[in-house]
Simulated scan of single mutants.
Amino acid sequence: MPQRLVVTELSHEPRKRFPEELRRLRNERGMSLRELAKVLGWDASLFGKMESGATLGGPEVVQALDQYYGTSPLLLTLWEMAVGDPTQFKEQYRRYMLYEADAVSLWHYAASAPPGLLQTEGYMREALAAGGAKGKVLEQQVEARMGRGKLLEGDEAPPFRAIISEAVLRMGLRDKRAWREQLEFLAEAAERPNITLHVLPFGAGLHGLTNTNTMFLRLLDGSTVVYAENDVRGELIEESSRVERLQRAYDAVRDLALAPAESRMFILRLLEELPCEPST
């Protein structure tokens, strides 16, 4: 995965950001346009025009670049935003994806599902299928979501804190093996140095974020944005006063949650309660 950015000049306007990212990624590889063209099989002049902003290219070449650089789905998301294609992400969520890629720290409250950055493929597959996705669309959405998890990997990964409602951990999946893998992954993730997990037990009662999945992103310029989502709608919140109110609510919820060590033990106990898989 490319190293995290340490500059603040990158634009959040998709038509400008797309060529900026293309230039940055190629320069990080130390490649010329000709070398990139030789590896991927497109003409060097096309990559030059895309990096200058003269053309956006097509989805096939953008997907190839995403695969080569290991950035999926960032470049395709930028391309969709730049051409105004709403097929994969709603506008506010697409903007959120840009902020997420740049965040220097992230913290999350999970009201109804494990944090997206910590979901296993099995969980994503069943959740997306339950929402109506199937066939090629399902595979594309699973692949896009799997790419997001790379954000928390490697030496340059940002710190991530998640508070997970006990309801999330009790709901489970129809596929018991996939659910076991999800719980095991959460327990393993809790041991990473950049990840802190809390479990919010049922006994904590009602609170200010009870029905709202909430992700806070601290950006390079020191500002914070929030993406809040429930079963009906999602909203990107950038207004400082609203962000501050949500931050206070999050801090109050964190005070009610179990400590990280207790939280990991809670997840391990849930694993012990799962029925053993039949021997083969």
Rank of each mutant, 00 (worst) to 15 (best):
D85Y: 08
V61P: 02
L117M: 08
S72P: 03
E100V: 09
A113N: 13
V137C: 02
G84L: 06
T77P: 01
A82D: 05
G132N: 02
A110N: 05
G147C: 06
G154D: 02
D66K: 04
Y123P: 01
L106G: 05
Y96W: 11
L151W: 04
G122F: 05
E121S: 08
T120M: 02
Q63P: 07
T55S: 13
G135C: 06
E80N: 12
K136D: 14
G132I: 04
R94G: 15
Q141P: 04
S112Q: 15
W79I: 03
M146D: 00
P114M: 11
E100A: 13
G131L: 14
L138S: 00
Q67V: 10
E91T: 14
R94Q: 15
L56N: 14
V104F: 00
A157W: 01
G58S: 12
L117K: 00
A127L: 12
T71E: 12
Q88Y: 12
P59K: 03
G122C: 09
V83N: 07
M97C: 12
E126L: 08
G147Y: 04
Y123V: 09
K150E: 12
A110K: 01
L151A: 12
Q119C: 09
Y99I: 04
Y68A: 07
A129V: 04
T120P: 01
K150R: 15
V137W: 01
E80T: 07
W79P: 03
S105M: 08
A64W: 03
L117T: 00
L151P: 03
E80V: 01
Y99M: 10
L75F: 06
Q92D: 14
G135T: 08
A103P: 03
E91F: 10
M124G: 05
Y68Q: 05
L78E: 07
S105W: 05
T87M: 10
E143T: 15
G70I: 07
L152T: 06
K136R: 13
D102M: 15
V137Y: 01
G154I: 08
Y69E: 06
G122I: 05
T71P: 06
G132M: 02
Q67R: 15
R94W: 02
T120E: 00
Y96K: 02
G84D: 06
L78H: 06
A103N: 07
K90C: 13
L78R: 03
R125C: 01
R125V: 00
G132V: 06
A144F: 11
A113S: 14
K150F: 09
R94D: 10
A103E: 04
R95F: 10
L74P: 02
G70Y: 05
L76G: 13
D66S: 11
H108G: 09
W107Q: 10
A103V: 10
L65Q: 03
E156S: 15
T77C: 11
L118H: 03
M97H: 06
T120N: 00
D85K: 14
S112F: 09
V83C: 10
Y93L: 15
P59N: 02
E80Q: 13
G122E: 11
M97N: 01
S72W: 11
K150A: 14
H108I: 04
L76H: 15
R94K: 13
P86K: 06
Q67C: 09
L65M: 08
A130P: 05
D155W: 14
T55W: 05
Y99A: 14
E60Q: 13
M124E: 07
L117G: 00
S105R: 12
